[in-house]
């Protein structure tokens, strides 16, 4: 199966006063059609920036400084504004974190759906309203015909995120960049919205780049996982393998910090220290100051990605295919 999206050696820099800060450093991954790729990491690791770069929505002072983004065999990172706009919403759609602020407060949700469809699809207004109605019903909004005339403030947060999903799916895109789609919702609503996203993607064969910091969401929804740390991709592989036997010490730390029923009552494990900021980059492996397996070469040489089982891990421990140290008990 050929890749729907290929990101090759992506580099994003931020032009600061005197120098350029590196926000995304040499990140490569691909998403086959219909796959859900979870992207995890701490806040500031570069997950959202990667998604924004794919959408072509980087804004000054951030800009793409290198690498290529290829969508369905065509390079898209060098498209002109108009060509990229026509692709956005049509082929690559987005769902953002906060449903309360994602919708125009002065426009009915029906009008926003119709507006999006009329921008991209060769259909007339009446057809667009019919589809809008059908979509609202599909995302599980009660009384969809009446709700078409509702304004965003008249809907709850969960309902609004369903509307946002309807907007993302309204032109049948091939890929959805979902940036923390459930983070801002009540816990009870999170699972519903995630299930809805999964179901709609499965039915349509839509691929998703699911950006989250919630390993629970990853375990629930992702086929594969990419772990980002300090603007770099540190590990990528099938969800089951990452959850079971992560190769990178950082990923192991992430897994160990998930509270589980078995460890209930005990202290939560945490990774000591904090992630380096872009304005204070660390030589060698960016994780080495926090790593319990740190070796001399980690301090000076940056590891490339090595195959470890079905995964790729950017860690010297994985250089010879040897399994990394097991997570601390």
């Amino acid at each position: 199966m050929s890749a729907l999206l290929e990101v090759e050696n992506l580099r994003v820099e931020i032009a600061a006063r005197a120098r350029r800060l590196v926000a995304i450093d040499d990140v490569s991954f691909s998403i086959p059609e219909g796959e859900v790729l979870g992207v995890v990491g701490e806040s500031g690791a570069g997950k959202s920036v990667t998604g924004t770069a794919i959408l072509g929505l980087l804004e000054r002072p951030a800009y793409q400084a290198g690498g290529r983004i290829v969508f369905r065999g065509n390079r898209i990172d060098n498209l002109d504004g108009e060509a990229m706009r026509a692709l956005r919403g049509r082929e690559i759609a987005a769902v953002f974190q906060d449903p309360l602020t994602s919708l125009d407060p002065l426009m009915t949700i029906g009008a926003q759906l119709v507006e999006t469809m009329l921008t991209h699809l060769p259909i007339d207004r009446q057809e667009a309203w019919t589809r809008a109605h059908r979509l609202l019903a599909e995302v599980g909004i009660p009384a969809p015909r009446e709700r078409l005339q509702s304004y965003p403030h008249e809907l709850s947060g969960g309902m609004r995120q369903r509307v946002v999903l309807a907007l993302a799916f309204c032109c049948e895109p091939k890929l959805i960049i979902a940036d923390e789609p459930t983070t801002a919702l009540d816990v009870s609503i999170q699972a519903q919205v995630l299930d809805l996203l999964k179901r709609m993607c499965r039915e349509r064969g839509t691929a998703v780049m699911l950006v989250t910091h919630d390993m629970g969401v990853i375990a629930e929804a992702a086929d594969r996982v990419a772990v980002m740390y300090a603007g770099r991709l540190v590990e990528i592989g099938p969800t089951s393998e990452i959850l079971r036997a992560a190769a990178h010490p950082y990923t192991q730390g992430l897994m160990a910090s998930i509270p589980t029923m078995r460890r209930r009552g005990g202290d939560l494990l945490q990774i000591p220290g904090s992630m380096p900021r872009p304005d204070a980059p660390v030589p060698g492996c960016a994780f080495h100051p926090r790593c319990s397996h740190v070796m001399d070469r980690c301090r000076s040489e940056r590891p490339s990605s090595f195959v470890s089982g079905a995964s790729l891990a950017a860690c010297w421990l994985a250089e010879h295919g040897a399994p990394a140290a097991r997570p601390r008990p």
């Binding site: 706009r85 026509a86 049509r90 987005a94 953002f96 906060d98 919708l103 407060p105 507006e115 921008t119």
Partner: peptide
């Protein structure tokens, strides 16, 4: 945010 989302919708 809603302007950013409007851009993401390709308007």
């Amino acid at each position: 945010d809603f302007i950013r989302f409007a851009k993401a919708r390709g308007l």
